[in-house]
Design a protein around this nucleic acid. Structure first.
Lengths: 346, 346
DNA sequence: AAATTTCACTGAACCGTATCAGCGCCCTCT
DNA sequence: AGAGGGCGCTGATACGGTTCAGTGAAATTT
C-alpha cells in the first residue's frame, strides 16, 4: 500500500496530473466543480504532497534553519534558547514551515552547516543568533545568498536583515535606577566578551555609570555559567571596596550570585542589590525574587521568524527593532545601605 | 550562477550521469581512477547532493523529527529538553542527519505533525518524548509505520522501540536513603499526573515508603512550574504534621520549594530535607546545593538517537535500557531533626 | 455570422538524483 | 580459438510534483 500521488488522483478523477496540481494548489485553470471533486478524492485517499518532489520542482523547502553555537552543557542552563525556539515555532506553525535545528561547537562548523543546508536545498533561510563582533558568519551567509535574519544590532549584521532591541537604552534604565537608589559602586558580571551585545552593554555600562555619578564601576566577563557567575561574585564581594550592586548578564548567574551573597552572610537587598537579565521563571522562584531586565523572548523569536518568512516570501529587506526590554523591579534591589561588613540576620 | 548538479560533473568529466552517481556514492561500477577524477571535480565546483532529488529517488530524508508537547512558557523553564536535544544532536551530527523540531500545544496537533512529516517524506523517523499512560500517539505511529523510538517505559510503548531508565529503582534509592536518615514523614511534589513516568514514580513512592517505615507519605501533582512547586510546598509545610523531607519531580520546583522553606524560616536541611530530580546546573547554584537524582540527559538523548538511527538503517528493533539515574547527595538533605516549629537561625 | 477571447483542460518537459538493463571490451579458462 | 564472465561505462527510466505551451469548445465581441 503505497503513498497516493497526484497520478492516482488524476486516474480516479479522469483528468490529467496537471489539472490535479492546479486544483490542489488553488491555481486557476480548473473549474470549481472539478476542483471540488479533486479535493474530495485527495481527502478520501489521504493524499499528502511529497515534499521532496515539490521542492525539486523549484518550490520552497518549507523549512528554516537555526544553529545554536554553544557548548552542549551550557545550553540547557539558559532558558533563553528554548523560549526563543518556542516563539519561532509559534510563527512557523501558521505557515506550516518546519524548523531545522542543529547544535554545533564552533562557528566554523556552524558555517559548514549553513553551506550544507543551503547547498542541499534543505532550508529556505536561517535565523542567526548570538551575533559576535566581526562575526565570520555574516559575510559567508551574504555570499551564499541565503535569506537570513540576524538577532542582534544592525551594526554587526552587514547587509543581512537584523532584528534587535536597544540594549544600551535598557542598560541606561538599569544604571540610572541603581544610581537613583544611591548606589555608587556597581559591578557588572557580563557574558562572553566576544558577543556583540556584550560589547554594547559594556560600553553603555561604562558611559552611563560615568554620567550618573557611579564612581566605581567594573566589569567581569564570564561564560554565562552559574559557576563562573558565582566565582565572579565571590571575587567582587571579597574586594576591599565591594560593590553595593551587581548587574548580571543572565538569570543563572544572578541566582548564583544571590547564593554566594547569602553564603557570605550579606543580606540581599539591604547590603547588596542584584539585577538579573533575560528574566525567566528562575528569577521569580528564588527569595528575594530578582529584579531583572525582562523581555518577551518568545515574542522576539516570533518577530524574527516573521521577518524571515517575509524576507523569503517577498524579498522584503530592512532591519527593524523587535520587542523591547525593560527593567522589572522586584525584591533584590533596594537603596544602597550604609557601608557595613557585619552579617545581617533578619 | 546555478548550483552545480551531477550533470555538470558528468559533462566536465566526459562521462555519463550514472557513472557520476556511482562514483559519488561509493558504489561499484566505476574504476578507482574515474572515481577519483569525479570526486575531484565535484570538490572543485562545490557540488552538494540536492536533498530533494535524492529523497525523491527513494532514499532517506536524512532527518528525524522531535515534537515537544508542552505549553511554550513551560518549555524554557526545564533545562531537560535543551539538554536532551543537544545529546540527540551530537549523535545525529555524525550521520549528517538533521533534526526537525516542532513545539505543539497538544497531542492532537502532535499526531497531525507526525502524519504530515511522514506523509511528506520529510523525516525518516521520530523520537517520542513525554510518554503518557495510554498514549494516543503510540497506536497512530504504529499504524503509520514510521520508525520511532519512545523515551519511556516499554509498558507504554506498544510495539515501538523504547529506551528508558528504571524510575522505580531510583525512587527506591531515594526513599530508602531518606528513611535511613530517619525521615518518617515524606512528601512528593510530582509532575503531570498523566505522564507514565509520573505514575511509575507514584507507585514506587507509595510502595517503598510502606516498606521502609515511612509512615506518612503523600503526593501532590503539579504542572512542573516553579509556581506550582512553591504553592504545593507552602501547603505541605503549613499542614499540621508537615513532612520532614520533600522529593520534587524536577529542579525548578525543588528550588522553588527551597525558597518557600527559607521564606517560612525553616532551615534546610536541618528542619527540612529536599531532593530534586533531573539534576541541572540550577541544583548546584543555590544554597544549600540540592541533593538530586541525577542523570546524564545528553547521553539519554544520544542513546535514543542512536537507537533510532539503527532502527532506520537496519530495522533493528528491541527496547533497551539507557543511561541510568542515581541519587547524588549534596547539602539539602540531612537526618530528620526533632520536631520543632521555631525558626532556626545559623 | 465571423472573429476573437476566455475557459478548462491535456500532454509533455523539467527539477536532480538513483538505479537498472545492456553493451562493448578485455581477461581467463578449456 | 571460442565460450564465458567480470569490469566499466552508457542510456533510459523512475521518483512526484510544477509549469508551460497548446487545444478544442464555449462565450463574447464586432
Amino acid at each position: 500500500m503505497k503513498r497516493p500521488t497526484i497520478a492516482d488522483i488524476a486516474r480516479r478523477a479522469g483528468v490529467s496530473k496537471g489539472a490535479v496540481s492546479y486544483a490542489l494548489n488553488g491555481q486557476p485553470g480548473v473549474s470549481e466543480a472539478t476542483r471540488a471533486r479533486i479535493m474530495a478524492i485527495a481527502q478520501e485517499i489521504g493524499w499528502r504532497p511529497n515534499l521532496a518532489a515539490r521542492s525539486l520542482s523549484g518550490a520552497r523547502a518549507d523549512a528554516i534553519g537555526l544553529v545554536l553555537c554553544r557548548p552542549a552543557r551550557f545550553l540547557g542552563v539558559e532558558p533563553f534558547f528554548m523560549e526563543l525556539i518556542s516563539g519561532i515555532e509559534g510563527e512557523l506553525a501558521a505557515s506550516s514551515c518546519a524548523l531545522m535545528l542543529q547544535v554545533v561547537p564552533d562557528h566554523e562548523t556552524e558555517i559548514a552547516v549553513y553551506r550544507r543546508w543551503w547547498g542541499e536545498g534543505r532550508v529556505d533561510g536561517a535565523i542567526l543568533v548570538d551575533l559576535h563582533a566581526d562575526d565570520p558568519r555574516v559575510p559567508v551567509v551574504e555570499r551564499l545568498g541565503m535569506p537570513a535574519v540576524v538577532t542582534g544590532h544592525p551594526s554587526g549584521a552587514g547587509s543581512l536583515t537584523a532584528v534587535w532591541s536597544d540594549e544600551a537604552a535598557v542598560m541606561r534604565e538599569v544604571i540610572e535606577y541603581l544610581a537613583a537608589l544611591g548606589h555608587r559602586r556597581v559591578a557588572r558580571v557580563a557574558g562572553l566578551p566576544g558577543l556583540l551585545h556584550t560589547r554594547i552593554r559594556d560600553e553603555a555600562f561604562a558611559e552611563v555609570c560615568a554620567e550618573s555619578g557611579v564612581s566605581e564601576h567594573q566589569v567581569v566577563h564570564t561564560d554565562y555559567t552559574g559557576e563562573q557567575g558565582a566565582r565572579a561574585t565571590r571575587r567582587l564581594l571579597s574586594s576591599r571596596s565591594r560593590p553595593t550592586a551587581i548587574v548580571y548578564d543572565n538569570d543563572i548567574m544572578a541566582v548564583a550570585g544571590l547564593s554566594v551573597a547569602q553564603e557570605m552572610r550579606l543580606d540581599v537587598p539591604s547590603e547588596l542589590s542584584i539585577v538579573g537579565w533575560d528574566d525567566s521563571a528562575l528569577s521569580q522562584v528564588v527569595r528575594p525574587a530578582l529584579t531583572a531586565v525582562t523581555r518577551d523572548i518568545p515574542a522576539c523569536g516570533a518577530h524574527a521568524a516573521q521577518t524571515l518568512l517575509r524576507l523569503i516570501a517577498s524579498g522584503e529587506r530592512g532591519s527593524h527593532e523587535g520587542p523591547s526590554a525593560r527593567l522589572l523591579p522586584r525584591g533584590s534591589t533596594a537603596p544602597a545601605g550604609r557601608d557595613r561588613t557585619v552579617s545581617h540576620v533578619p
